[in-house]
Computed example of a mutant assay.
Amino acid sequence: MTRSPESSRLFQPTRLGPLTLPNRLVMAPLTRNRAGADGVPSELMTAHYAQRAAAGLIIAEATTPNAVGQTYPNIPGLYTEAQVAGWRRVTDAVRAAGGRMFVQLQHGGRVGHPDNSGLVPVAPSPIPLPETIHTPTGRQPSVTPREMTVDDIRAHVADFAAAARNAVAAGFEGVEVHAANGHLLHQFLATNTNHRADAYGSTVAGRVRFVVEVVEAVADAVGQDRVGLRISPRNTVNGIAESDTDTLYPALVDALAGLDLGYLHVVRTDAADPLLRDLRGRWAGVLMTNPDLGPDGGLPADGGRAAGERLLAAGADVIALGRAFIANPDLVERLRRGAPLNPLRQGPLMYVGGATGYNDYPVLAAA
């Protein structure tokens, strides 16, 4: 007998931290460059997230905890009163539409530029990004980051905790600490970007230390169950190369085991990945996964549903989808009905521009 779309575990409620989610489909954090130059969320963002409030959980896009952490132009922050007020408008709109939101806290580290932040980027070691970087005047050569001192590290731990408190003040139910995709925390984890000889480098225990300290500080600031951690084992984006992935991530997960966090978010994986099975065995809490849907730029006809269901069968608890939510504000209803999905429109409108390519994707009735 063919199972109806509605019978999938994707549409069953579940617990995540302090929340009961009405379904297991999470809108993944998606950088779209629609904030103001001052990092204040725009009215476009308010409309965008409210349109997608039917997701079990929305994780808002990468948001910087301090000025030097800015990656690209028009990235939101959570370190000024105006930014907190801007995010409050977003969370109020999503809550009014029946939704729930976490926000991702991301520091770019060496993925930054003085033309974007006004500051020289910082990183675990003075190793530049091996590619150009987008700025308001076009792509520019990357700059060599300043190696963080131990005092810098302590200050950044405090900045992450302060941003988490600001997130709760802005109406978010929790925060996701971003230790993935080649940004600052991932730079501490990876051997090709962390050449430190002190307590924050050299060994696996040293390289995971900064991530652990950030997560602990954020958990102390807002509560353990309001915190998720995002990792992306084997991801080579932004020039990252890990030489000991299968040792590194089990050590990181073990170091966090006693914290009772809201969730662990593993990016771009599949049900057959032995490392995912290892991490599932070590992680007693909620496991969120992003299915590996192939190179960026395409969207499977089912939006990633089949891959997500395989991951649920392999032990995941909730499934995060990105591209499918970009193109389909009513993704949950479309997948529930087995209805066709909107195609994803590629090109500069993904990251630059106004409502076009951002808030103008039709819902089922309009389509």
Rank of each mutant, 00 (worst) to 15 (best):
N23D: 00
M148P: 07
G201C: 03
G258I: 02
Y358H: 10
P233H: 13
D159V: 00
S202F: 02
A60K: 08
T31R: 09
A28H: 02
L129W: 03
T64H: 09
A316V: 05
R110N: 11
N166T: 00
A47K: 07
L335F: 06
P128I: 06
D292M: 09
F188T: 02
L261V: 11
S243A: 14
G39D: 04
Y361T: 10
R52Q: 05
P130W: 04
A241I: 08
A365H: 12
P124G: 10
A339R: 10
G98H: 11
A47C: 02
V266N: 13
D317T: 12
T135G: 10
P340S: 11
L189C: 10
V168F: 01
L229E: 03
Y361N: 06
A257W: 01
A272V: 12
P76L: 11
E176N: 14
V177F: 05
A251F: 00
T236Y: 03
E81Q: 11
L264Y: 07
A217S: 08
F188H: 02
P362Y: 14
D244Q: 12
E43H: 09
V286F: 00
R100N: 07
I58W: 04
A327G: 07
H183D: 09
V143L: 12
G56A: 05
V84A: 06
P5Q: 15
F325Y: 15
P29T: 11
G258W: 08
G98L: 06
L229C: 04
W283E: 07
P329H: 07
V168K: 13
Y249M: 13
Y249C: 09
F11M: 04
T2N: 14
R277K: 15
N74S: 06
L25A: 04
A314N: 10
P130G: 05
P348G: 02
G294K: 13
V211F: 01
R139K: 11
G206P: 13
N238S: 12
S232Y: 12
N194A: 09
V143E: 14
G118C: 07
Q70V: 12
D292W: 14
H107S: 12
A123F: 01
T289C: 15
F102Y: 15
P340N: 13
T269D: 08
A219D: 01
L312M: 13
R88Y: 01
A257D: 03
N33H: 15
E43F: 00
V352E: 14
N116H: 05
V266T: 11
A93C: 09
A158M: 05
R100F: 00
P295F: 13
E216I: 00
A313T: 12
E216A: 05
Q70L: 14
L119H: 13
G304D: 01
A162L: 12
V286W: 03
G174A: 08
I127Q: 12
G285D: 03
S232E: 06
R345D: 08
I319K: 07
P250F: 10
P126H: 09
G174S: 09
A96Y: 10
S4A: 14
A366G: 00
T135V: 09
Q106R: 04
V177E: 08
D330M: 06
V204E: 03
D198Q: 13
T144H: 06
H183L: 10
T269G: 01
A197I: 04
H195K: 14
P340H: 04
V222R: 09
D198C: 10
Y361M: 10
I231K: 07
R95I: 01
S243G: 03
Q70I: 13
A47Y: 00
A123G: 14
H178L: 03
R282E: 09
A161K: 08
